[in-house]
Design a protein around this nucleic acid. Sequence first.
DNA 1: GTCTAAGATTGGCATAGACCAATTTGGTTT
DNA 2: AAACCAAATTGGTCTATGCCAATCTTAGAC
Lengths: 241, 241
Amino acid sequence: MRVPKYYTYKLRLLSFIDGAAAGTMLPTERELAEEFGTSRTTVRQALAELVAEGRLDRVQGRGTFVAAPKLVHVRQLTSFSEDLGDRDTRSELIGLGDEPADAATAGHLGLEPGATVQRIERVRRVGDEPLAHETARLPGALAVTADELAVTGSLYRALRDRHGVSICGADDEVETALATPDEARLLGTEVGQPLLVVHRTAWDASGRTVEWTRSVFRGDRFRFQARVGSRPAGDRAPAAG
Amino acid sequence: MRVPKYYTYKLRLLSFIDGAAAGTMLPTERELAEEFGTSRTTVRQALAELVAEGRLDRVQGRGTFVAAPKLVHVRQLTSFSEDLGDRDTRSELIGLGDEPADAATAGHLGLEPGATVQRIERVRRVGDEPLAHETARLPGALAVTADELAVTGSLYRALRDRHGVSICGADDEVETALATPDEARLLGTEVGQPLLVVHRTAWDASGRTVEWTRSVFRGDRFRFQARVGSRPAGDRAPAAG
DNA sequence: GTCTAAGATTGGCATAGACCAATTTGGTTT
DNA sequence: AAACCAAATTGGTCTATGCCAATCTTAGAC
């Protein structure tokens, strides 16, 4: 198999990254091009893939830096606020209101197209870093208020407290996508960067769908975790990989 | 937010794709560059993203074509052979043998580094199309044979039939990655294309880890599905989105 | 008809450079 | 010391171009 030239430079850069602490600055693109005896374009292609993989961060005017390791997102019928444990998580409400259901929304929620649904649009953060953009849609009868969401940041708690509805199952579909300009802006990344897109359909004890949510995560920062079955205690715990 | 020029061309191409049948050929890169009044490099960037998203297929010497829609991969403690239902699935064994556990493998399987583990390396296909590359690692005591795997193509069935071990839970971690030259060759895609990488740790009723598997899927062809909780019957089923 | 070889077509890879935008730096002014 | 401004630095985008590799087409030989 032919190996593109840029790929060999990527491997050389990777060995440097592996031996360096997060935050270490790399030489400039122009310096690397000279050092490798190639063009800046080719160096940029290698750098671009390492950025897409979350190994490097680039800032215009500053330079290129070794990135911190990925976070793990645990998502087992928990709300986002519970996912990341004791980390400093915040949730910014950027949209809340009623709208008529389009075909896809109606299909997933089991409603007629045009029925009223509530759209809840939020940006999730860990510390200052934006990590996810979520758009949830609920049947109009299950609408919640901004205040209820603000208390704990948990949609599931708001549903339980206001409507007595408890989520008892969910279906997540995970796929890759590339950041649109809007998504790049909200997530603090660049247009065209790989994302993880999760579509969640959640239902209550009666099987009624109570939530359909599209969540977009930065692929270079996140890992999606799904667990099936509970693990008995007393086993030898797996270590980090 | 500034929108790169290539992105506007991407949107124009997307509207063409949406109105065309799978297999429809697009104009050549050189023609598009002239039509848009830009350089071939810029057109290629727009095309590259559409390929990464699974909307286009490109073949050197042939042309650029509208791609077929994504497949959905159901993966809920089922084996691959059960995942895709009645589709024509095959599994090609490309590696089987014992090896000493490296640190990561030992950690995940709960063994001492250097302990013997069995490596099972397979390429999964639907029809002729390669869709996943899986490398499973089992504790040496739970090794299976090529014959046992060949019967149904199911590792879980082989484990049950030979060792009386039933999988009762698993933990999947999903992240994005970019195809290496080796992965690109095995999956029939291009170096640098986005992939979905799934690390599965599966355990039996006693909580003992019996499998640690790394699966690599083409991000442009696959969706990963995880379901938590069983859904009562009689609800209104969600339609396709 | 079938096979083969040469040429044309098309995407893949790489180069060199121009200009823009964000940031930092360092000197000047207040 | 603080505020400000201009220059240098660095990554971001785009152009124009050349050659390579895979594929298809066509003409010719048998």
